[in-house]
Amino acid sequence: MNRRAFLLSGAALVAVSVEARATPAEVARLIAALTEGARVVEGGMKLDLPLLVENGNVVAMSITVDDPPPGQHVESLHVFAEANPLPEVLHVRFGPAAARPRIATRIRLATSQSVIALAKLSDGSFRRDSVDLLVTLAACLD
């Protein structure tokens, strides 16, 4: 029973599709350019991702921002993945018809890494949350 060989046949195919990766430093630069020195508070929002990813092709993600103080609203959301081929995942700007600042979607993750989400409030400040997750590969591949 040679399970290792079975796995390797999968791994070899994956390697073909892997290109250059983003780096944490690159993501840090993008975040600095976005926040432009504004205050960034850890928390006050929830980035929801599974800690253990079954398949990096389809990872359920949701972002919920706690209600901001009266008179303020959430202007935008920004998601970055530190080790994807491209560090940017999604930018969302909310308009006046939006209700609770919550979105859900599905994303691709090339490997185990940190995903970072920022929410911009109307006073110019930011909130931030991040998740470190482990991506496992499926055994059978095309």
């Binding site: 930018h91 308009g95 994303i107």
Partner: peptide
Amino acid sequence: LVLEATLFPAIS
């Protein structure tokens, strides 16, 4: 506007 989004290849 409800929302507008910029999507990258990381969207499934």
